[in-house]
């Protein structure tokens, strides 16, 4: 028996294990065709269906496409991988490892996060080339992409807590939330153009704040204060992480 705890405290062990969990998903899922379809093509079609013919300016369209792509791609891995892991019982490995559930949730979300942050470069590059939209605030873009991706990856992990062995169950619940989110987040219609009740509803969607930050990168100004955007997305991430941790524990009893 060897004690492998030297030279690495519990926090460091937790983070390493979370990274190992993420790496495993990266190896397994990044090249799966259905993940690429749901992560890239689906948001593109959604976007084309709603944006074309609206005559919206590119500074609205490009951030919108990026935001929707992140929403769908970030939450496309865990809702598939976790039910499959339940079915094959590999999930028991994660549940019986010497790490906290928080690290399991974090590790699972990391793969969706990285996937999504990478995929977001596609609409970003395409948008900038096709529409010639100049980038005025790169910092807002980076923060917007990373935070939004992390937020929706954690949301995907949260939904995957529902104790089913079938990815379809989780995907349909998730779409019940993801599709309406597109319309209440100022993606196609700017927040300030919404009726007052709409302006209140948008506050419930993390996509509103992510989209706001990404738009700031192109338009130079935001509807909310960028700090508000950051704090709001951070708050959603924390909320999803805590809720996921709670549900995984609850459903495992």
């Amino acid at each position: 028996m060897t004690d492998f705890s030297e030279g690495c405290g519990q926090l460091c062990r937790e983070l390493k294990a979370a990274w190992a969990i993420a790496k495993k998903d990266i190896r397994i899922y990044y090249l799966k065709p259905n993940i690429i379809v749901s992560g890239m093509l689906f948001p593109l079609f959604m976007f084309l269906a709603f944006a074309i013919g609206r005559d919206a300016p590119p500074t609205l369209l490009v951030p919108g496409l990026i935001a929707i792509t992140i929403l769908f791609s970030a939450s496309s891995i865990e809702p598939v991988s976790i039910p499959i892991e339940r079915r094959t019982k590999t999930f028991d490995r994660l549940l019986s490892a010497p790490i906290s559930l928080h690290s399991v949730v974090l590790g699972e979300s990391l793969s969706g996060f990285l996937y999504s942050a990478g995929i977001a470069l596609v609409p970003l590059t395409a948008g900038m080339i096709i529409f010639q939209t100049p980038l005025v605030q790169p910092a807002a873009l980076i923060a917007g992409i990373l935070l939004t991706a992390f937020c929706f990856a954690t949301m995907g992990t949260l939904f995957a807590a529902y104790p089913t062995e079938s990815p379809g169950d989780i995907m349909s619940m998730l779409n019940l939330v993801r599709l309406p989110l597109i319309f209440v987040s100022g993606v196609f219609i700017p927040v300030n153009a919404l009726p007052p009740i709409g302006q209140v509803i948008v506050m419930l969607s993390p996509l509103t704040f992510g989209n706001d930050l990404i738009r700031a990168a192109f338009e130079g100004s935001t509807h909310f204060n960028p700090l508000v955007d950051l704090v709001a997305i951070g708050g959603f991430i924390l909320l999803f992480q805590l809720a996921a941790n709670h549900l995984y524990r609850k459903f495992n009893e």
């Binding site: 028996m1 004690d3 492998f4 705890s5 690495c8 062990r13 390493k16 294990a17 190992a20 969990i21 790496k23 495993k24 190896r27 397994i28 094959t88 019982k89 590999t90 028991d92 490995r93 994660l94 019986s96 490892a97 010497p98 790490i99």
Partner: peptide
């Protein structure tokens, strides 16, 4: 931290190689 577990079902990752399966198990235990 002191235990090893061999579950009832052979719960291995079908899409990973034997080596990556083993390394993943080790990484979970740091």
């Amino acid at each position: 931290r002191q235990m090893g577990i061999v579950h009832e079902t052979s719960n291995v990752y079908d899409d990973l190689s034997a080596w990556h399966n083993l390394m993943f198990a080790a990484e979970l235990y740091n």
